Simulated assay, not measured.
Amino acid sequence: MKKIAIIFSHAPYGKTLGQEGLNLALSMSCYTENIGIFFIGDGVFQILKYQQPNFILSKSYFISFKIFIANNINNFYLCYDSLLQRGLYKNVDYVLKLNICSFIKIRKKIKKFDFILNF
């Protein structure tokens, strides 16, 4: 079975990329469990636990990331370098239990996947 990497590299609101990536990952999980989810760059904001999108008149979808666990997707990686660049390295809660890795380690992991999709 082919391995699929889904990369979230954009901020969660203002564009629909995050929601589209989430929907695609959930759809693909019906066909394969070989899915890796990566949060890099501004994508680290996707997984923050205490988001309040209602203040900018947006709908909340970040809680839906928990559905991955029910669909047997358990490979979640968060870029430590991206956290540092955005000041998110202390006392931050996330929606999921994540593997926090350096950017170099994440690049090595992504290279092991057959398909790479960026949102």
Rank of each mutant, 00 (worst) to 15 (best):
Q52H: 15
I37Q: 04
L22K: 00
L22W: 00
F65N: 02
Q19S: 07
K97Y: 11
V95T: 08
N75Q: 12
V44E: 06
I47L: 09
F103T: 08
A11Y: 08
Q19D: 03
Y80E: 14
F8A: 02
L78S: 08
F113Q: 06
A70S: 14
F62A: 10
I40Y: 00
D114C: 04
K66G: 09
Y31G: 12
E20I: 11
T16M: 11
K108W: 07
Q19E: 13
F115I: 14
I116D: 01
R107P: 00
L117Q: 04
R107S: 12
M1G: 13
C101A: 11
Q46P: 04
S64Y: 12
I73F: 05
H10D: 08
Y80H: 10
G21Y: 00
Q46I: 02
I47E: 02
N118L: 12
A5H: 04
T16V: 09
Y50K: 11
K3P: 08
Q85T: 08
A5I: 06
N99S: 14
H10E: 13
G18E: 01
Q19G: 01
I4Q: 02
Q51W: 06
N72L: 09
Y13R: 01
Y94C: 08
I73D: 00
N34H: 15
I106L: 12
L83K: 05
I73P: 02
I6M: 11
K66Y: 12
D81E: 13
A25E: 06
D114T: 03
Y89T: 11
F45C: 01
I7G: 05
F8D: 00
C30G: 13
F45H: 03
N74C: 09
F65T: 00
N72S: 13
G21I: 02
T32W: 14
I6C: 08
Q52C: 13
I40Q: 01
Q19M: 12
S82K: 06
I110H: 09
F103V: 06
Y61Q: 01
K90M: 14
H10Q: 08
V44A: 11
F115E: 12
K112H: 10
F55Q: 13
F8K: 00
N91Y: 09
L83E: 05
D81I: 06
I35D: 03
I6W: 07
I106M: 11
L96K: 09
R107F: 08
K66V: 07
I69E: 15
M1R: 11
D93S: 14
I37W: 02
K105R: 12
L17A: 07
L83H: 06
K112S: 14
N118V: 15
K108V: 03
G21R: 04
I104V: 10
V92Y: 06
D42L: 07
V44D: 04
Y13C: 00
N23V: 05
G41R: 09
I63Y: 15
F119V: 00
L83C: 10
I7L: 13
L24M: 14
S58I: 00
N74V: 09
D42Y: 05
C101N: 13
L78N: 04
F38V: 06
E33W: 08
H10G: 02
K108Y: 10
